[in-house]
Amino acid sequence: MKEAWRGITSMTIGGVLIAALVGIVSYAIWTLPAQSVGLADAAAAELERSGVSNPVTSVLLNYRAYDTLLEITVLWLAVLAAMVLVGGWSTGVGQISETQNPVLRGLVRLLTPLMILISGYLLWVGGHAPGGAFQAGAVLGSAGVLLVLAGVDWTRKVPPWGERVLLTMGLTTFMIVGLGDMLLQGVFLEYPPEYAKWLILVIEAPSGLSIAAALIALFLGGRLRCRHMMSDQMSDEGV
């Protein structure tokens, strides 16, 4: 009884405090002027020199490319972390075997090529319209996950070094391009304007693949290559 009261008390206090915080922050937002330029004009003004015509991509891969480099590192880091934590004892998802579900298999057969195509399109279109490496990687990654779920054991064919290369090739390319720029221009990641378009594409393509690989690996518990699961390791499905 006492416990319950204590729970209710703390919930009330917490609720009130959080409401107060939300209220103050909301009030602060309400005081904002209705219009503000931010960096939209500045970004648009330099769009010519950035090598792409989609402003978001220009921010992502040119003005603030350093952030993006670190972000790709974060993704790879998460894979490493998952591998440390899960890789030792499990292969990730549940049972991967020749599944008996023909509908799923059929659908996968239809969808996978389409998804690969779409991801390629998204990668290309990122230069001038919404899209880019992350979107492409996400679609490609989900295609991979779908395959695994359907029991198509495609990842078994990936050699261990291939898996590692696949996961890091985006980051490696990014760094090589950045350092190459530094040799040419003197500053890390400063693309020569005339090659910016191509350099961005050079970075994006492997990055998209790496992102896709990382997403699949995260789904599988830190590894791309999933072995067949031992029967005694089935108990961890409860979470």
């Binding site: 209705a34 219009q35 330029v37 931010g38 939209a40 402003p55 978001v56 921010v59």
Partner: peptide
Amino acid sequence: RTPSGAPDPV
């Protein structure tokens, strides 16, 4: 909130 309506990309 940009005046032009095109959102701020940053």
